[in-house]
Design a protein around this nucleic acid. Sequence first.
DNA 1: ATCTTTTTGTGAACACTTTCACAAGCCGGT
DNA 2: ACCGGCTTGTGAAAGTGTTCACAAAAAGAT
Lengths: 217, 217
Amino acid sequence: MTRKRISDSAVRRLSRYLRFLRDLERVGKDIVSSRELAEGTGTTAAQVRKDLSHFGSFGKRGQGYVASELRRSLREILGLGRRWHVAVIGVGKIGSALLGYGDLTQRGFDIVAAFDSDPVKVDEKLGGVRVRSLASLEADLASARVDIAIIATPPDSAQSVASRAAAAGVPAILNFAPVKLEVAPHVVVRSMDVSLELEGLSFLLSSSGGNGSGEKA
Amino acid sequence: MTRKRISDSAVRRLSRYLRFLRDLERVGKDIVSSRELAEGTGTTAAQVRKDLSHFGSFGKRGQGYVASELRRSLREILGLGRRWHVAVIGVGKIGSALLGYGDLTQRGFDIVAAFDSDPVKVDEKLGGVRVRSLASLEADLASARVDIAIIATPPDSAQSVASRAAAAGVPAILNFAPVKLEVAPHVVVRSMDVSLELEGLSFLLSSSGGNGSGEKA
DNA sequence: ATCTTTTTGTGAACACTTTCACAAGCCGGT
DNA sequence: ACCGGCTTGTGAAAGTGTTCACAAAAAGAT
């Protein structure tokens, strides 16, 4: 299968298209043009068409796209035609926020396990999942067939936990710890980092003539 | 004075260099080469040098960089030579996680206000900040001279809150709600979205036929 | 003082992404 | 059946970002 490599940003846009199509569903609109899709997701019509063209031809010339069909196609493209098993490792502020965030289940991601090193938290039940000890991490990840491990531990434990998850056969990691994770090349890693984003804003604010007083242009 | 536009990804790398330099400080190492910087942050030596070259010349040929000096320069470049006033709007799971995340203060971001619409939460104290009612949002944001509003409300309130923050003169927004925010063009917006990242992983997992595609951290 | 080793800073080459522009196709009206 | 208005799909062009490759500089050795 000659899958041309799709850029990271393109995949993110596909997700946004899908989200916008869900909004349309609620409104009851079932025909949508690339221009509308673009306006609803912050890109251009040409970009929308180019993104979709990598995967096939989904629209009708002169008409646009049938929202419900495109929605189904995008779900398929993004791999959302199945459910994914997710584990949350580290049940601190972020971890427990994720456990309580029911939206994930709705989007196809089932949190099937949670782990923490703190004995006080172990055996607690959070968001319908019992917190397990880190001792049995490898075995539990494997037996639950976890596809994605969300790492929400303190920075110093993140690397060790990532290595263990990778060794247990978990093929993807979503990392909330502000550290660079080293894992075998076949393991996919994405990081979400609040400080990094804030520093990005800091850069933009201070390089764009930002003055301290809260004035508007 | 408009500096040459620096790409988003370049700014993110600068943040990572800075983080790595902080790690070096703890270890007591004060000379570092572009190659070491690259290995520690997951990029290439050429990329490190190119990134830095946009802002000046910080190293010594044949030697490398003086870590402490480069650290100071990067802090300056990223706008971290001052402290930023941050407000958290929406004190649900994510919002309260952020309020308890002391690391931000250490990095130059002071959470000076928190807001929620729930009367039960109003006047609670979380992470040293009293939760205020959304009623007084504009006035409070302005009087606290908030530079960055973190939006952690449910999706349906996010746009309204963003507009109000922008109108109150807040120049930057970090958005945790899974919606596209429309604000005046001079307001900078960044979004962090767990579902989007998970869907990105879903795509990679389901389209990987076993190629060794590189990961990003 | 000169040679050797090292590493920066940077133009040029390359690779990748986005935008442009237009033929091909679809539909409703006449 | 044909026309006119629209919108897709897509090569080609333009624009951005990354990698290469090497002269210039620095320091220690001889």
